[in-house]
Simulated assay, not measured.
Amino acid sequence: MSDPTRRDIVERLTKKPASVSELASPLSMSLAAVVQHIQILEESGLIKTQKIGRVRSCKVETNSLELIENWVYQRRKFWGRNLDRLGEFLEKKEKEKK
């Protein structure tokens, strides 16, 4: 999800499923490059693709988004606690200097 193109693709797929061509149309890159991004998103479990005839459709995997949300929440809590502790430590050191 660090790549802006992948974030854009996932964001658009949260609104509605789309074909690879639909996803590629507003992007300023080749269809092959978009397909590579889609493959990475599919391998990571964020989206699922299905080929019907000649059209490959994509949809977001909501369960995967929930896992990411939980992971981010846990990291936010972890860093919030650690930064609070660092702030307390620095305040204590500053008071000891005086």
Rank of each mutant, 00 (worst) to 15 (best):
E69F: 10
V35L: 14
I40G: 02
S30A: 13
P26K: 03
N70W: 01
T62H: 11
M29I: 13
W71I: 01
S28F: 07
I68E: 11
I52C: 04
S30W: 03
E66S: 10
S57Q: 12
A32K: 12
E43L: 11
K59D: 13
R81Y: 05
G45L: 02
L23K: 05
I47W: 08
V55P: 04
D3Q: 09
S19R: 10
R85A: 11
F89N: 05
P17Y: 10
P26D: 11
H37S: 03
R76Y: 05
H37N: 07
E96H: 00
E91F: 00
M29D: 05
R7D: 06
L83R: 09
R85E: 12
A18R: 15
V35G: 08
Q74D: 14
V60G: 05
E66Y: 09
D84R: 07
P4C: 02
M29C: 09
D8P: 00
E91L: 07
F78E: 10
E42S: 12
P26C: 10
E42Q: 15
T62S: 14
R81S: 07
G53R: 05
E66K: 14
K16Q: 15
I52G: 02
I47L: 12
R75T: 00
I9G: 03
K93W: 01
D3A: 08
A33R: 15
S25H: 11
D3L: 01
I9Y: 02
L27W: 06
L86P: 01
R85N: 07
K16L: 03
